[in-house]
Each structure stands twice: as structure tokens, then as C-alpha cells.
């Protein structure tokens, strides 16, 4: 049972990292708590369905295309909705909530409430030291880790990444240095939402898709991001591992409701006593 616990923890943690990364990036750069983040995960899942199962494109090509769709919708939302609320943390949070309702409603209107039937490109299991690991989950976790690494490269080694980090630290100073937030903002939103879209497209063949799947995704991203410190990427990575362990452990020993309760307890404690997150300076 312990080996299985380790497997579940590691596989979950990789997906949690991916879910949280986009959320924390958007907050870091734009100071927007994107409560519609889960809906971009959902958009990724549905985009995968359309590209792979309706248009018949192979999974390897459908996966990045699905993420691209989520990213593009993100850019449109940034331009039409969020830009008006820059600097208004509470206002942008509220408008994100309204956007979440709208996106969920739009997908329901187009696809109905039944989850679509999504083909599974990968099946079978590998056995490792007494634990069983499904290949599709292993693949999703591996791709998630690669994406996390790529995002890190983007932030530290490119001009765009530098601009994003500069705006995140001090938008005004960055503007004076000639960096235009009006290009960094859409870029951050595109990357953040595309990462969410990847998470949706990676998990949809495993767990299916439904219009309300974003709620659960948002909860996980929220917990990880707060535990890791809002806007902190290394913090989010550590927190994802922690949440993976907490979730798997308590769910196996007791039940998932208690696991959720514990994770919200941890969120409250961190915000009270270490608001900058587990890695931050209190």
C-alpha cells in the first residue's frame, strides 16, 4: 500500500504543479487572482476533444493545439475583460468569477452537460517494485514536468521572461525602463492559460471532461498557490508535492473530504502565519 501511496503522490504532484503554475504566473505578473483558471483547464479538455475526436488529429498534435486554444481565449479575455481591472485586485477577482460562469455556460451551450467521449491514446500499465503505474498517468506527469521546466526556461532565459519578471516586481519601474505592460500582460495571460489548457488536455483522456470540471482544478491550484506563496514559482512546486502527499495519504487512511478539509486548514494557517508561503520570509 505504501508503494501505491508514493506513486499516487508523485503523479498527482506533477499535475498540481502544472495547474498551479499558470495561476501563480498570472497573479505574479498582473496581480489578478484568476478565479476562472479552472475554466481554462476545462477549455483545454474540450479543445482536445474537438481536435482529436471530432477533427481526427493525432494526440501528439492535438495536445499542443488544445493548449493553444486555451491560450488564445486567455488573450481575448485579457484584452476584453481583465485589462479594465488592472490594479484593482478585488475587482479583477470578481470579474474573473463572472467570466468563469460565462465560460462554463458557453461550453454547456455548445456541447451540452454530458461529458464528451474522449479517446484514450495510451493504455496499459508498468509495474515498479510492487506498485502499479498506468502508462497514461505516467505520460501526463512526465509532460507536466517538462512543461514546468520549459516555463522556467522561458522566464529566466528570454527577453519576454525578463519583462514578465520585471513587471511582476514593479510594474511602474518596468514601464520607465521601456517595458510595455500592454504586451507583457497578454503574454503572461497566454502562457498561464495555455498551461491550464495543457493540464486539461493531459487529464481529459484519463478522467474525462465535463463543463464543471474546472471547480476541482481551481481548488487544487488555489491550495498549491497559497501554500507556496502567491506569485512564487519555486514555492508552488514544493507546495504541489506537499498537497500530493497530503491528499493521497489522508484519502487512503481516511476519506477525501477530510483530505480537502486538511488542505484548507493548511491554507488558512499559511495565510495567517506565513502569508508569503512556505518558502517565503514570514
Amino acid at each position: 500500500m505504501f508503494q501505491q501511496f508514493l506513486v499516487i503522490m508523485a503523479l498527482s504532484a506533477a499535475i498540481y504543479m502544472l495547474l498551479a503554475l499558470g495561476f501563480t504566473l498570472i497573479f505574479g505578473v498582473m496581480r489578478v487572482v484568476n478565479f476562472a483558471h479552472g475554466e481554462f483547464v476545462m477549455l483545454g479538455a474540450y479543445a482536445l476533444y474537438v481536435v482529436q475526436d471530432v477533427l481526427g488529429v493525432g494526440y501528439a498534435a492535438a495536445l499542443p493545439l488544445a493548449a493553444l486554444v486555451a491560450g488564445l481565449v486567455g488573450v481575448v479575455c485579457e484584452r476584453l475583460v481583465f485589462r479594465r481591472f488592472v490594479g484593482d485586485e478585488i475587482g479583477s477577482m470578481i470579474v474573473a468569477l463572472a467570466l468563469a460562469v460565462t465560460l462554463k455556460g458557453a461550453v454547456t451551450a455548445v456541447f451540452g452537460t454530458d461529458g464528451p467521449s474522449i479517446a484514450r491514446p495510451i493504455s496499459g500499465v508498468v509495474t515498479l517494485g510492487g506498485a502499479v503505474i498506468p502508462k497514461d498517468q505516467l505520460f501526463a506527469a512526465a509532460v507536466a514536468l517538462v512543461l514546468v521546466a520549459l516555463t522556467h526556461r522561458l522566464l529566466v532565459a528570454t527577453r519576454l521572461g525578463l519583462a514578465m519578471r520585471a513587471v511582476a516586481q514593479d510594474a511602474e519601474a518596468a514601464r520607465l525602463q521601456g517595458m510595455r505592460p500592454w504586451t507583457t500582460y497578454p503574454a503572461a495571460f497566454a502562457v498561464g492559460c495555455a498551461l491550464a489548457g495543457f493540464a486539461g488536455a493531459l487529464t481529459a483522456p484519463i478522467y474525462g471532461a465535463a463543463p464543471d470540471m474546472g471547480d476541482a482544478a481551481l481548488m487544487k491550484a488555489f491550495v498549491v498557490v497559497v501554500l507556496g506563496g502567491l506569485g512564487s514559482i519555486p514555492g508552488a512546486l514544493i507546495a504541489a508535492l506537499l498537497l500530493g502527499a497530503l491528499d493521497a495519504g489522508i484519502s487512503i487512511l481516511f476519506d477525501p473530504t477530510l483530505a480537502a478539509l486538511a488542505s484548507f486548514g493548511a491554507v488558512i494557517a499559511v495565510l495567517l502565519f506565513r502569508p508569503s508561503g512556505i518558502l517565503g520570509r514570514a
Binding site: I8, I252, P256
Partner: peptide, 15 residues
């Protein structure tokens, strides 16, 4: 028992 919105049953099934 599981929660209605649950989709990940790996922990429950381990038990």
C-alpha cells in the same frame, strides 16, 4: 463512499 464530483479513485481503490 465517494463524493459525487470525484473523478480520481486511486486512493479509494488502494484501500
Amino acid at each position: 463512499h465517494f463524493e459525487r464530483q470525484q473523478t480520481d479513485f486511486r486512493a479509494l481503490l488502494t484501500k
